[in-house]
């Protein structure tokens, strides 16, 4: 009996399976690579950029790409490559902190709402519905339009806007897990709510939360860049990507690269994050939630 049981083979290890599966999805590999490069650049950027992002050189205005200026220069003769790199740090810190805020708050509210249920859940979720009934960009615009677009305000607004989405995802997972029988088994042995919430439920919430967080991050970049374009992003002289694109429109006929390089960089990052998020979904939620 013993040897028959142990002789039964265990399915090939999860990791090697995942890698095999990933090979069939080139988009995911592209996503991971792109995000990896962006993170690397954001970290080492200041050490490799030859120019400061606000160093003006009026004798070298609107130059095309060259060995000295990889992405060319803008209307003030500033090095676009340096500005794009510096901007990527801003994007990571602002969109990243906003996402983190949304994830932490959404996790807390979603766990509380899902676990407690009843009136608390009803009130919280109704409030979330109300927030969701206002298009995010609209709400961001009217808030930032009144309080002013400082770095902190943008982070707070992005975080605040995406709390409902995260909270809903977390809540639905908690509601599902809560009814599983292993939770009842825990109650049968007299576990307290803390153990059930943090040791039984939380580990099961984390995989879908990671997927949701990566999606929120891509939407945050989208939102921050759009706000920048509308003039509600980080104010000059900070090199905000959206703002750079907006200003470069004036010079498009003379010097399209001033617009194209920042725009292309935004596109690459957003696409990379979206592909990564999709890859995470495939790895962490096999056969799971779609959409």
């Amino acid at each position: 009996m013993q040897n028959i049981l142990t002789a039964r083979q265990i399915p090939a290890s999860r990791i090697s399976r995942t890698i095999k599966r990933l090979r069939r999805y080139p988009a995911t590999l592209i996503g991971f690579t792109l995000v990896g490069i962006f993170i690397l650049m954001a970290i080492i950027g200041p050490w490799i950029t030859p120019y400061g992002f606000s160093d003006q050189d009026l004798s070298n205005r609107l130059q095309p790409a060259s060995a000295e200026h990889w992405f060319g220069t803008d209307q003030f003769g500033r090095d676009i490559f340096s500005r794009v790199l510096a901007g990527s740090r801003d994007v990571f810190t602002i969109a990243g902190s906003g996402t983190l805020l949304a994830v932490l708050m959404g996790l807390t509210l979603g766990m509380v709402s899902g676990y407690l249920g009843g009136a608390a859940d009803e009130i919280l979720m109704r409030f979330m519905d109300v927030l969701l009934s206002i298009p995010p960009l609209l709400l961001a615009m009217i808030i930032l339009g009144t309080v002013g677009p400082s770095r902190l305000n943008i982070v707070l607004v992005v975080g605040f806007l995406y709390i409902p989405m995260v909270a809903r995802v977390v809540r639905s997972v908690v509601l599902d897990i809560k009814t599983r029988e292993f939770i009842e088994a825990a109650k049968m042995r007299g576990e307290n709510s803390g153990y059930i919430l943090f040791r039984e439920i939380l580990p099961n919430v984390l995989p879908p939360l990671a997927v949701e967080a990566s999606m929120r991050f891509s939407y945050s970049i989208f939102l921050v860049a759009s706000l920048g374009f509308l003039g509600l992003g980080v104010q000059p002289p900070s090199p905000d990507w959206g703002m750079m694109v907006s200003e470069a429109r004036t010079w498009y006929n003379q010097a399209p690269w001033v617009l194209l390089y920042p725009a292309g960089t935004i596109a690459l990052l957003v696409v990379g994050v979206a592909f990564t998020s999709d890859g995470l979904r495939r790895m962490l939620l096999p056969g799971g939630v779609s959409g």
């Binding site: 080139p26 891509s218 860049a225 694109v245 617009l259 957003v270 696409v271 979206a274």
Partner: peptide, 18 residues
């Protein structure tokens, strides 16, 4: 799926200007 995912992530001002 790949292309639609990419477009879904691109801000309108980027696609619009391109």
């Amino acid at each position: 799926s790949g292309i639609s995912m990419a477009f879904a992530g691109l801000p309108e001002f980027v696609t619009g200007l391109i």
